[in-house]
Simulated scan of single mutants.
Amino acid sequence: MQHAPLIIDIAGTALSDDDRRRLAHPLVGGLILFTRNWESREQLTKLTAAIKRLRPDLLICVDHEGGCVQRFRTGGFTHLPPMRALGELWMRDAMRAQDAATACGYVLAAELRACGVDLSFTPVLDLDWPIDAAMPARRQSAARTGAGDLGWPGVSRSRVIGDRAFHADPRVVTLLAKSVAHGLLRAGMSSCAKHFPGHGWVVADSHVALPRDTRSLKAILADDGAPYGWLSAALDAVMAAHVVYPKVDARPAGYSARWLQAVLRGRLGFGGAIFTDDLSMEAARHVEGRTVTPVEAVLASLQAGCDLTLLCNQSLGDGGVIDEVIDGLAEAQIKGAWTPSAASDLRRQALLPRQAAPDWAQLMRSPDYLHALALIP
Protein backbone atom coordinates (compact mmCIF):
# COMPACT_ATOMS: atom_id res chain seq x y z
CA MET A 1 0.00 0.00 0.00
CA GLN A 2 1.28 3.48 -0.91
CA HIS A 3 1.69 5.91 1.98
CA ALA A 4 0.21 9.29 0.95
CA PRO A 5 1.28 11.67 3.74
CA LEU A 6 1.01 15.07 2.04
CA ILE A 7 -2.01 17.29 2.71
CA ILE A 8 -1.73 20.24 0.33
CA ASP A 9 -3.89 23.24 -0.62
CA ILE A 10 -5.29 24.78 -3.79
CA ALA A 11 -5.38 28.44 -4.78
CA GLY A 12 -8.88 29.05 -6.07
CA THR A 13 -12.53 28.07 -6.15
CA ALA A 14 -12.10 25.40 -8.85
CA LEU A 15 -9.38 22.92 -9.71
CA SER A 16 -6.66 24.09 -12.06
CA ASP A 17 -4.59 21.75 -14.22
CA ASP A 18 -1.73 22.09 -11.70
CA ASP A 19 -4.10 21.21 -8.85
CA ARG A 20 -5.24 18.08 -10.69
CA ARG A 21 -1.66 17.04 -11.41
CA ARG A 22 -0.60 17.46 -7.78
CA LEU A 23 -3.68 15.83 -6.28
CA ALA A 24 -3.25 12.82 -8.56
CA HIS A 25 0.25 12.18 -7.24
CA PRO A 26 0.38 9.03 -5.07
CA LEU A 27 2.26 10.84 -2.28
CA VAL A 28 -0.61 13.31 -1.84
CA GLY A 29 -3.31 12.06 0.52
CA GLY A 30 -5.62 15.03 0.74
CA LEU A 31 -6.05 18.79 0.80
CA ILE A 32 -7.06 21.54 3.19
CA LEU A 33 -9.57 24.21 2.21
CA PHE A 34 -9.50 27.89 3.15
CA THR A 35 -11.88 30.84 2.89
CA ARG A 36 -10.33 31.72 -0.48
CA ASN A 37 -11.71 28.41 -1.79
CA TRP A 38 -15.25 29.55 -0.93
CA GLU A 39 -17.58 31.46 -3.20
CA SER A 40 -20.91 29.84 -2.40
CA ARG A 41 -22.26 26.62 -0.99
CA GLU A 42 -23.07 25.38 -4.49
CA GLN A 43 -19.54 26.16 -5.68
CA LEU A 44 -17.96 24.41 -2.68
CA THR A 45 -20.08 21.30 -3.30
CA LYS A 46 -19.02 21.24 -6.97
CA LEU A 47 -15.38 21.66 -5.97
CA THR A 48 -15.39 18.77 -3.50
CA ALA A 49 -17.24 16.59 -6.03
CA ALA A 50 -14.57 17.33 -8.64
CA ILE A 51 -11.86 16.38 -6.13
CA LYS A 52 -13.57 13.07 -5.37
CA ARG A 53 -13.99 12.31 -9.07
CA LEU A 54 -10.26 12.77 -9.45
CA ARG A 55 -9.47 10.48 -6.49
CA PRO A 56 -12.18 9.17 -4.16
CA ASP A 57 -9.62 8.43 -1.43
CA LEU A 58 -8.42 12.03 -1.06
CA LEU A 59 -9.16 13.41 2.41
CA ILE A 60 -10.80 16.85 2.16
CA CYS A 61 -10.03 18.83 5.33
CA VAL A 62 -10.72 22.25 6.79
CA ASP A 63 -10.12 24.26 9.97
CA HIS A 64 -13.71 24.88 11.03
CA GLU A 65 -14.06 25.04 14.83
CA GLY A 66 -16.55 27.84 15.46
CA GLY A 67 -15.90 31.32 16.76
CA CYS A 68 -12.95 33.03 15.07
CA VAL A 69 -11.88 29.86 13.25
CA GLN A 70 -14.71 29.08 10.84
CA ARG A 71 -13.89 29.09 7.14
CA PHE A 72 -17.44 29.09 5.77
CA ARG A 73 -19.94 31.56 7.25
CA THR A 74 -22.47 32.34 4.52
CA GLY A 75 -24.79 30.34 2.28
CA GLY A 76 -26.68 28.88 5.21
CA PHE A 77 -23.74 27.81 7.39
CA THR A 78 -24.50 28.21 11.08
CA HIS A 79 -22.33 30.72 12.94
CA LEU A 80 -20.98 28.45 15.66
CA PRO A 81 -19.91 29.93 19.01
CA PRO A 82 -16.29 29.87 20.22
CA MET A 83 -15.68 26.83 22.36
CA ARG A 84 -15.16 29.01 25.44
CA ALA A 85 -18.92 29.66 25.30
CA LEU A 86 -19.44 25.97 26.07
CA GLY A 87 -17.03 26.22 28.99
CA GLU A 88 -18.95 29.21 30.33
CA LEU A 89 -22.19 27.27 29.97
CA TRP A 90 -20.56 24.42 31.92
CA MET A 91 -20.11 26.74 34.90
CA ARG A 92 -23.89 27.32 34.95
CA ASP A 93 -25.17 23.89 33.89
CA ALA A 94 -22.62 21.13 33.22
CA MET A 95 -25.10 18.61 31.84
CA ARG A 96 -26.67 21.09 29.46
CA ALA A 97 -23.18 22.14 28.31
CA GLN A 98 -22.34 18.58 27.27
CA ASP A 99 -25.54 18.32 25.24
CA ALA A 100 -24.82 21.70 23.63
CA ALA A 101 -21.29 20.57 22.78
CA THR A 102 -22.66 17.46 21.07
CA ALA A 103 -25.09 19.67 19.15
CA CYS A 104 -22.25 21.95 18.03
CA GLY A 105 -20.25 18.99 16.79
CA TYR A 106 -23.23 17.55 14.96
CA VAL A 107 -24.21 20.81 13.22
CA LEU A 108 -20.58 21.58 12.32
CA ALA A 109 -20.02 18.16 10.77
CA ALA A 110 -23.42 17.76 9.12
CA GLU A 111 -23.15 21.09 7.28
CA LEU A 112 -19.60 20.38 6.11
CA ARG A 113 -20.45 16.83 5.07
CA ALA A 114 -23.43 18.13 3.06
CA CYS A 115 -20.90 20.13 1.02
CA GLY A 116 -18.49 17.22 0.58
CA VAL A 117 -15.92 18.05 3.28
CA ASP A 118 -14.57 14.98 5.08
CA LEU A 119 -12.76 16.27 8.18
CA SER A 120 -12.52 19.38 10.34
CA PHE A 121 -9.49 19.83 12.59
CA THR A 122 -11.43 19.97 15.85
CA PRO A 123 -11.82 19.80 18.88
CA VAL A 124 -9.21 22.05 20.50
CA LEU A 125 -7.89 20.49 23.72
CA ASP A 126 -5.60 23.37 24.69
CA LEU A 127 -6.25 24.71 28.17
CA ASP A 128 -7.40 28.29 28.74
CA TRP A 129 -4.43 29.33 30.86
CA PRO A 130 -4.74 32.91 32.16
CA ILE A 131 -2.09 35.59 31.93
CA ASP A 132 -1.91 35.86 35.73
CA ALA A 133 1.16 33.77 36.59
CA ALA A 134 -0.16 33.11 40.11
CA MET A 135 -3.38 31.60 38.82
CA PRO A 136 -2.01 28.22 37.64
CA ALA A 137 -0.90 27.25 41.14
CA ARG A 138 -4.31 28.16 42.54
CA ARG A 139 -6.00 26.17 39.77
CA GLN A 140 -3.82 23.13 40.40
CA SER A 141 -4.60 23.30 44.12
CA ALA A 142 -8.32 23.55 43.42
CA ALA A 143 -8.14 20.68 40.94
CA ARG A 144 -6.53 18.42 43.53
CA THR A 145 -9.14 19.20 46.19
CA GLY A 146 -12.12 19.42 43.85
CA ALA A 147 -12.88 22.88 45.26
CA GLY A 148 -13.00 26.35 43.86
CA ASP A 149 -14.18 28.02 40.68
CA LEU A 150 -11.92 26.59 37.96
CA GLY A 151 -13.39 28.70 35.17
CA TRP A 152 -11.85 32.06 35.87
CA PRO A 153 -12.72 34.94 33.57
CA GLY A 154 -10.09 37.09 31.96
CA VAL A 155 -7.57 37.16 29.17
CA SER A 156 -6.02 33.94 27.92
CA ARG A 157 -2.28 33.54 28.17
CA SER A 158 -2.05 32.34 24.55
CA ARG A 159 -2.87 34.82 21.78
CA VAL A 160 -3.33 32.08 19.22
CA ILE A 161 -5.70 29.97 21.35
CA GLY A 162 -7.77 32.54 23.26
CA ASP A 163 -11.47 31.71 23.24
CA ARG A 164 -10.87 28.66 21.07
CA ALA A 165 -10.21 26.82 24.35
CA PHE A 166 -13.13 25.29 26.24
CA HIS A 167 -11.89 25.85 29.77
CA ALA A 168 -8.95 25.99 32.16
CA ASP A 169 -9.67 22.64 33.83
CA PRO A 170 -8.49 19.60 31.81
CA ARG A 171 -11.42 17.56 33.17
CA VAL A 172 -13.94 20.03 31.75
CA VAL A 173 -12.02 20.22 28.46
CA THR A 174 -12.06 16.43 28.23
CA LEU A 175 -15.80 16.06 28.74
CA LEU A 176 -16.75 18.91 26.41
CA ALA A 177 -14.32 17.74 23.72
CA LYS A 178 -15.69 14.20 23.99
CA SER A 179 -19.19 15.61 23.53
CA VAL A 180 -18.12 17.56 20.43
CA ALA A 181 -16.46 14.42 19.05
CA HIS A 182 -19.69 12.50 19.68
CA GLY A 183 -21.59 15.09 17.66
CA LEU A 184 -19.08 14.86 14.83
CA LEU A 185 -19.40 11.09 14.83
CA ARG A 186 -23.21 11.27 14.69
CA ALA A 187 -22.84 13.24 11.45
CA GLY A 188 -20.30 10.80 10.03
CA MET A 189 -17.12 12.81 10.67
CA SER A 190 -13.96 11.83 12.52
CA SER A 191 -12.35 13.99 15.21
CA CYS A 192 -8.89 15.56 15.27
CA ALA A 193 -7.77 16.97 18.62
CA LYS A 194 -5.13 19.70 18.79
CA HIS A 195 -2.49 20.87 19.64
CA PHE A 196 -0.63 18.01 21.35
CA PRO A 197 0.66 18.14 24.05
CA GLY A 198 -0.71 21.67 24.63
CA HIS A 199 -0.39 25.17 23.20
CA GLY A 200 -2.34 27.12 25.83
CA TRP A 201 0.53 27.76 28.28
CA VAL A 202 2.82 29.60 25.87
CA VAL A 203 2.33 33.28 25.03
CA ALA A 204 3.97 33.26 21.59
CA ASP A 205 1.98 32.53 18.44
CA SER A 206 3.57 29.65 16.52
CA HIS A 207 2.43 31.18 13.23
CA VAL A 208 5.05 33.92 13.65
CA ALA A 209 7.45 32.71 16.38
CA LEU A 210 8.82 29.56 18.01
CA PRO A 211 7.09 29.16 21.40
CA ARG A 212 8.91 27.47 24.29
CA ASP A 213 7.18 25.80 27.23
CA THR A 214 9.72 25.27 30.02
CA ARG A 215 7.61 23.02 32.25
CA SER A 216 8.54 19.43 33.05
CA LEU A 217 7.01 16.40 31.36
CA LYS A 218 5.23 15.57 34.61
CA ALA A 219 3.65 19.03 34.83
CA ILE A 220 2.58 19.04 31.19
CA LEU A 221 0.99 15.61 31.35
CA ALA A 222 -0.76 16.45 34.63
CA ASP A 223 -2.54 19.40 33.00
CA ASP A 224 -2.39 20.08 29.23
CA GLY A 225 -1.63 16.50 28.22
CA ALA A 226 -4.23 14.90 30.48
CA PRO A 227 -7.17 15.12 28.01
CA TYR A 228 -5.17 13.17 25.41
CA GLY A 229 -4.76 10.27 27.82
CA TRP A 230 -8.38 10.38 28.98
CA LEU A 231 -9.58 10.49 25.34
CA SER A 232 -7.07 8.06 23.85
CA ALA A 233 -9.82 5.61 22.83
CA ALA A 234 -12.26 8.31 21.69
CA LEU A 235 -10.20 10.42 19.29
CA ASP A 236 -9.56 9.53 15.65
CA ALA A 237 -6.64 11.89 15.04
CA VAL A 238 -4.33 14.31 16.85
CA MET A 239 -2.47 17.37 15.57
CA ALA A 240 0.95 18.09 17.09
CA ALA A 241 1.93 21.54 18.34
CA HIS A 242 4.78 23.60 16.89
CA VAL A 243 6.03 24.25 20.41
CA VAL A 244 9.38 23.33 21.97
CA TYR A 245 9.27 21.77 25.44
CA PRO A 246 13.02 21.86 26.24
CA LYS A 247 12.81 19.75 29.41
CA VAL A 248 11.40 16.94 27.25
CA ASP A 249 13.01 17.42 23.82
CA ALA A 250 14.89 20.18 21.99
CA ARG A 251 12.66 19.66 18.94
CA PRO A 252 9.11 20.97 18.52
CA ALA A 253 6.55 18.28 19.35
CA GLY A 254 5.72 17.62 15.69
CA TYR A 255 9.35 16.72 15.04
CA SER A 256 9.86 14.78 18.27
CA ALA A 257 9.85 10.97 18.36
CA ARG A 258 9.81 11.20 22.14
CA TRP A 259 6.56 13.17 22.17
CA LEU A 260 4.84 11.32 19.35
CA GLN A 261 6.02 7.76 19.81
CA ALA A 262 7.17 7.40 23.41
CA VAL A 263 4.52 9.65 25.01
CA LEU A 264 1.48 9.87 22.71
CA ARG A 265 1.59 6.36 21.29
CA GLY A 266 3.45 4.54 24.08
CA ARG A 267 2.51 6.15 27.38
CA LEU A 268 -0.95 7.47 26.42
CA GLY A 269 -1.89 4.58 24.12
CA PHE A 270 -3.17 6.66 21.20
CA GLY A 271 -3.60 4.61 18.02
CA GLY A 272 -5.15 7.07 15.56
CA ALA A 273 -3.63 9.33 12.91
CA ILE A 274 -1.10 12.03 13.81
CA PHE A 275 -1.06 15.26 11.78
CA THR A 276 1.53 17.99 11.78
CA ASP A 277 0.28 21.51 12.16
CA ASP A 278 0.95 23.70 9.11
CA LEU A 279 4.61 23.24 8.16
CA SER A 280 4.73 26.71 6.62
CA MET A 281 4.33 28.32 10.05
CA GLU A 282 7.36 30.12 11.45
CA ALA A 283 7.72 27.69 14.38
CA ALA A 284 7.90 24.74 11.96
CA ARG A 285 10.84 26.21 10.07
CA HIS A 286 13.33 25.70 12.90
CA VAL A 287 14.69 22.45 14.32
CA GLU A 288 17.32 22.65 17.08
CA GLY A 289 18.49 26.09 15.99
CA ARG A 290 18.67 25.28 12.28
CA THR A 291 16.32 26.59 9.60
CA VAL A 292 14.90 23.70 7.59
CA THR A 293 13.58 23.54 4.04
CA PRO A 294 9.99 22.40 3.38
CA VAL A 295 11.30 18.99 2.26
CA GLU A 296 13.39 18.64 5.41
CA ALA A 297 10.40 19.64 7.52
CA VAL A 298 8.21 16.97 5.96
CA LEU A 299 10.90 14.29 6.34
CA ALA A 300 11.61 15.27 9.97
CA SER A 301 7.94 15.05 10.91
CA LEU A 302 7.43 11.70 9.19
CA GLN A 303 10.57 10.26 10.78
CA ALA A 304 9.36 11.46 14.20
CA GLY A 305 6.10 9.55 13.84
CA CYS A 306 3.60 11.81 12.05
CA ASP A 307 1.32 10.08 9.56
CA LEU A 308 0.18 13.19 7.68
CA THR A 309 1.89 16.51 6.97
CA LEU A 310 0.10 19.81 6.32
CA LEU A 311 1.44 22.21 3.70
CA CYS A 312 -0.81 25.28 3.75
CA ASN A 313 -0.90 28.33 1.48
CA GLN A 314 1.80 26.95 -0.79
CA SER A 315 -0.32 26.78 -3.95
CA LEU A 316 -0.41 30.57 -4.21
CA GLY A 317 1.76 31.91 -7.01
CA ASP A 318 3.32 29.10 -9.01
CA GLY A 319 2.97 26.50 -6.24
CA GLY A 320 6.64 25.65 -6.55
CA VAL A 321 6.99 24.63 -2.88
CA ILE A 322 4.39 21.89 -3.29
CA ASP A 323 6.17 20.51 -6.36
CA GLU A 324 9.49 20.73 -4.54
CA VAL A 325 8.13 18.73 -1.60
CA ILE A 326 6.50 16.08 -3.79
CA ASP A 327 9.73 15.63 -5.77
CA GLY A 328 11.89 15.72 -2.65
CA LEU A 329 9.82 13.13 -0.81
CA ALA A 330 9.79 10.86 -3.87
CA GLU A 331 13.57 11.16 -4.10
CA ALA A 332 13.95 10.40 -0.39
CA GLN A 333 11.85 7.27 -0.85
CA ILE A 334 13.97 6.10 -3.79
CA LYS A 335 17.21 6.73 -1.88
CA GLY A 336 15.93 5.02 1.27
CA ALA A 337 15.92 8.20 3.37
CA TRP A 338 12.20 7.72 4.02
CA THR A 339 10.24 4.48 4.22
CA PRO A 340 6.50 4.69 3.51
CA SER A 341 4.23 3.27 6.21
CA ALA A 342 1.24 1.14 5.24
CA ALA A 343 -0.10 1.57 8.79
CA SER A 344 0.02 5.36 8.39
CA ASP A 345 -2.03 5.23 5.22
CA LEU A 346 -4.57 2.93 6.84
CA ARG A 347 -4.93 5.55 9.57
CA ARG A 348 -5.45 8.22 6.88
CA GLN A 349 -8.11 6.17 5.10
CA ALA A 350 -9.86 5.47 8.40
CA LEU A 351 -10.61 9.22 8.59
CA LEU A 352 -12.71 9.10 5.41
CA PRO A 353 -16.46 9.16 6.14
CA ARG A 354 -18.17 5.79 6.05
CA GLN A 355 -21.68 7.07 5.42
CA ALA A 356 -23.07 9.03 2.50
CA ALA A 357 -23.12 12.80 2.85
CA PRO A 358 -26.55 14.29 3.57
CA ASP A 359 -28.32 16.40 0.98
CA TRP A 360 -28.34 20.04 2.15
CA ALA A 361 -32.07 20.57 1.60
CA GLN A 362 -32.94 17.37 3.44
CA LEU A 363 -30.53 18.27 6.25
CA MET A 364 -32.27 21.62 6.74
CA ARG A 365 -35.55 19.75 7.38
CA SER A 366 -34.04 16.98 9.51
CA PRO A 367 -35.52 16.81 13.05
CA ASP A 368 -32.10 15.90 14.48
CA TYR A 369 -30.49 18.92 12.84
CA LEU A 370 -33.25 21.33 13.89
CA HIS A 371 -33.11 20.02 17.46
CA ALA A 372 -29.32 20.44 17.53
CA LEU A 373 -29.60 24.01 16.26
CA ALA A 374 -31.90 24.85 19.16
CA LEU A 375 -29.30 23.60 21.68
CA ILE A 376 -26.38 25.72 20.44
CA PRO A 377 -25.65 28.59 22.87
Results as ranks from 00 to 15, higher is better:
Leu23Ile: 06
Leu23Thr: 02
Ala24His: 07
Ala24Thr: 01
His25Phe: 03
His25Ala: 05
Pro26His: 09
Pro26Gly: 06
Leu27Ser: 08
Leu27Asn: 10
Val28Ser: 03
Val28His: 08
Val28Ala: 09
Val28Pro: 03
Gly29Gln: 12
Gly30Gln: 08
Leu31Thr: 01
Leu31Gln: 09
Ile32Thr: 10
Leu33Gln: 08
Leu33Met: 08
Leu33Tyr: 04
Leu33Gly: 09
Leu33Arg: 09
Phe34Cys: 02
Phe34Trp: 09
Phe34Val: 03
Phe34Gly: 03
Phe34Lys: 02
Thr35Val: 09
Thr35Trp: 06
Thr35Ile: 04
Thr35Asp: 12
Arg36Gln: 13
Arg36Ser: 12
Asn37Lys: 11
Asn37Val: 01
Asn37Cys: 01
Trp38Ala: 04
Trp38Asn: 08
Glu39Asp: 14
Ser40Phe: 11
Ser40Lys: 05
Arg41Gly: 15
Arg41Trp: 06
Arg41His: 06
Glu42Lys: 14
Glu42His: 14
Gln43Thr: 12
Gln43Gly: 14
Leu44Gly: 12
Leu44Asn: 14
Leu44Val: 11
Thr45Ala: 14
Thr45Ser: 15
Thr45Ile: 10
Thr45Pro: 15
Lys46Gln: 15
Lys46Ile: 06
Lys46Glu: 15
Lys46Thr: 13
Lys46Gly: 15
Leu47Ala: 07
Leu47Tyr: 11
Leu47His: 14
Thr48Gly: 13
Thr48Trp: 14
Ala49His: 11
Ala49Trp: 04
Ala49Ser: 13
Ala50Ile: 04
Ala50Trp: 08
Ala50Gly: 13
Ala50Thr: 09
Ala50Met: 07
Ala50Asp: 12
Ile51Trp: 06
Ile51Gln: 03
Lys52Pro: 10
Arg53Asn: 13
Leu54Ile: 04
Leu54Ser: 01
Leu54Gly: 01
Leu54Thr: 04
Arg55Tyr: 10
Arg55Ile: 04
Arg55Ala: 00
Arg55Pro: 00
Pro56Gly: 14
Leu58Arg: 08
Leu58Glu: 07
Leu58Asn: 04
Leu59Ile: 00
Ile60Tyr: 03
Ile60His: 12
Ile60Glu: 05
Cys61Thr: 02
Val62Ile: 07
Val62Pro: 03
Val62Thr: 01
Val62Trp: 05
Asp63Ser: 01
Asp63Pro: 00
Asp63Val: 00
Asp63His: 00
Asp63Trp: 00
Asp63Asn: 02
His64Asn: 05
Glu65Lys: 06
Glu65Trp: 00
Glu65Ile: 00
Gly66Asp: 05
Gly66Glu: 06
Gly67Asp: 11
Gly67Lys: 01
Gly67Arg: 05
Gly67Met: 04
Cys68Ile: 10
Val69Arg: 00
Gln70Cys: 02
Gln70His: 03
Arg71Lys: 12
Phe72Gly: 08
Arg73Trp: 00
Arg73Val: 08
Arg73Cys: 08
Thr74Ile: 03
Gly76Trp: 07
Gly76Val: 11
Gly76Ile: 11
Phe77Arg: 00
Thr78Asn: 07
Thr78Ala: 05
His79Glu: 15
His79Phe: 02
His79Cys: 07
His79Ser: 09
His79Thr: 11
Leu80Trp: 01
Leu80Met: 02
Leu80Pro: 05
Leu80Asn: 01
Pro81His: 02
Pro81Lys: 02
Pro81Tyr: 05
Pro81Glu: 06
Pro81Val: 04
Met83Arg: 01
Met83Ala: 10
Met83Asn: 04
Met83Glu: 06
Arg84Ala: 12
Arg84Val: 09
Arg84Phe: 02
Ala85Thr: 14
Ala85Gly: 09
